[in-house]
Design a protein around this nucleic acid. Sequence first.
DNA 1: TAAGATTGCTTAAACGATTAATCGAGGGGG
DNA 2: CCCCCTCGATTAATCGTTTAAGCAATCTTA
Lengths: 325, 325
Amino acid sequence: MANIKKIATDMGVSVATVSNALTGKGRVSSQMVDRIRQRANDLGYRPSLAGRALRSGQSGILGLVMPDLTNPLFPRIAQNLSMMADDRQLGILIADSRGNPDEQTQAIERLLDRGVDGLLIVPQKGTAPGQQRVPTVIINTASDPDNTVSADHAGGGKLIAEHIAALGHSDVIILGGDRVSEVQRDRVNGMHAGLNRSHKVTELWDKDGMDQLVCAIKDGATAIMTTSDLLALRVHSHLSQHGIFVPQDISLTGFDDLPFATAMHPQLTTVAQDVEKIAHLAIDRLIRTIQNDDPPVETTTVAMRLVMRASTLIKNETANLETTQ
Amino acid sequence: MANIKKIATDMGVSVATVSNALTGKGRVSSQMVDRIRQRANDLGYRPSLAGRALRSGQSGILGLVMPDLTNPLFPRIAQNLSMMADDRQLGILIADSRGNPDEQTQAIERLLDRGVDGLLIVPQKGTAPGQQRVPTVIINTASDPDNTVSADHAGGGKLIAEHIAALGHSDVIILGGDRVSEVQRDRVNGMHAGLNRSHKVTELWDKDGMDQLVCAIKDGATAIMTTSDLLALRVHSHLSQHGIFVPQDISLTGFDDLPFATAMHPQLTTVAQDVEKIAHLAIDRLIRTIQNDDPPVETTTVAMRLVMRASTLIKNETANLETTQ
DNA sequence: TAAGATTGCTTAAACGATTAATCGAGGGGG
DNA sequence: CCCCCTCGATTAATCGTTTAAGCAATCTTA
C-alpha cells in the first residue's frame, strides 16, 4: 500500500510536506500541492486511519447500541444513522444487546474499548445507561431523563386517540405491549390524553392475554388502540378466529408503521416516526458534543404522523367505505 | 487513560516487559507477570487498538455490507454475525447499500478505506462484487459463482413444492418477486424441481400484477407458492378482497419465516433459513481466510427447513382442520 | 571451573500519520 | 549594507503498541 513516505520519496520532499499538502495545512507552494495531490491520486493513496487515529486520539468511529435488531423499527434507525455517518466520513460500529440488559452493558464496554469517539444508544427497555466515558446520545422517549432525542411517543398516542374519538368511538380498549418499557407507557399515557371523561376506556396489557380483549369487545368496545403494529397484527389474527372482523366489527390501530402495515388486510391505521429526522438530530447532536465537549442538555422530541388507512371506521359504519390516505 | 508506559514506569520495568507480560509472549518471570497484570487491572488499563492496529497492520474490524437493512431478513443475519464477531473479539463496521448497486461499490470502498481486515457481503440483487483487496465472503445463493455460503434457496423451494404436492395439489401457481434476483430465481427453480409432469404450473412474477393471479385461480389453481413472506402477505390481503380465502379456498406459502408469519391469520406455512449457521460458517470462513491468506474455494449451502403452519391444506379439505407444527 | 545454555529483562526500531519548531534563502525597507 | 520578515521547506517528536535483537546474570554440564 502506498503511504505518505512513498509519496515523499517519489517527489523528493519530506513527509511533512506531503502531509501538509494533502491536508491543506502548513505552508506549501501551490505547484507542490498540485504535484503531490496528483501523485497521491496516481498511487491510489489512502491515508491510514490507524496512524491518524493514534496521532489524533480520535478514531472517527461512532458506536451504535441497539436493543434488538430483529425488531423492524431499529434497522430503519440504523440505516438512517449509517447514511448520516457516511456523509460525515464517520464509521458506525454496531452492537446488538439482544434484549438483555447485561449484554447492553457489555456492548457499551466493547465499543468503548474499540475507541469510539461517541455513542448512540437506543436503551433496552427498563434500563438507563446514561452518559458514558465518551459523548453519548440516548434515543428513547421524552419521559426518560437521559433522553436526548426521540419520537414524541405520547403525542403519537394522543394523535391516534383523537382520531378514534373523532370517528365517534366512545368505548375503547388500549392495549399495551410491555409495562416495563417507558416507550410503551408513554404511548399509553398519550392515548389516555387524547380521550376525555365521556369515553369509557379499558386498559389492557399483552400478558393479560387475548381473552380479556374478547370480553371487553363483547361488553361493547368498538375500537382497539395497540402500542405496536405487530401487536395489532396479532390481535387482528386472533379476533378473526372469533368471528370478529376489522374494521366492520371493530376499529384497530397500530404503532410505528412497519413494512407489513400496508400488506395487511385491511391496511393498518397507525402512527409513524420520522426516523430520518430523529437520526439526523441524534447524530448532529453527538458530533457537536464531541467537538465542543459540552454535554447535551435539553432533550428533543420529534412529532409523529398519523397514517390513516382502512383498519379504522366511523362507529357503526358499514364496511363498504374504504378509508385510504 | 492508562497506557503501557504508565504501567512500566509504575513497576520500574521497560514497556517491552509489560507488553510481553500482558500478551503472554516473550520471556517474563511469572511473579513479574502477576504483578504487571495486577497493576494493569487496578489502573483499568485497556490496550489502544489504534496503536495495536498501526503496529500489526490489522484493525480487528470486519466490514459488513448489507443490501437493505429494512428487509427483515438481513438484520437477523447482522445480529448473528455481530454475535459471532463479539465472541472473537472483532468489531463489525456496518454499511447499508440501500438497494443501490452504486451505493454498494461506495460502501465497500469506504470500508476498505477504514482498514477492515475482511469483508462480508450480501450482494445487491443482480450484482457480483466478487473478491476485493481483503479477504471477502459472499453470502448469496448457490448459483452465484462468487458465493461462499448461503441458504439452499433451491432446496427450500423444492421442500415447499414437495409439501404442496404431498397435499394433493395438482394445479399450482409459482409467484416470484423480482426476476433480477438470483436468489428469487433459484427459489423458483427449486419449486419447479419439487413438482413433476403431472402438475400444471403457472409461473408469475410480482410485476405481472395481481390480476393474472386471480385469473389463474379462477382457472382452477388451488395453491400459490411465493418467494417471500411479504409477498404472501400481500397476496393474502389482495385475495380476501376478492372473496378468496386462505386456506379454505387456496393454499398459500411464503419464504424466510419472517416475524409476522406467525402473527398472520392463518399462520403462514413457509421455509426458514438457518441464519445462525450461515453466519457461523461465513465468519469462520472469513477468519480462516484472513489468517491463512488463501482464498476460499468451495461454496457451502445450508439446508432450509419447512415450517408447516395453517396456510396450507389438503386439496378440497374444509377449513376446520388446523395444521400446526 | 570454564564454556555454553538459559533466563529475565532492556534497547531500539517500526507501524503511518500530524505538527510544533526550525532553518536557509530571497526580498524589502531603513 | 544590514536587519527583519516571509516563504517554503525540513527536522524531529509524538501517539501506543509489538517484537527482533542484545545483554547481563544465573544455571548446567563436562
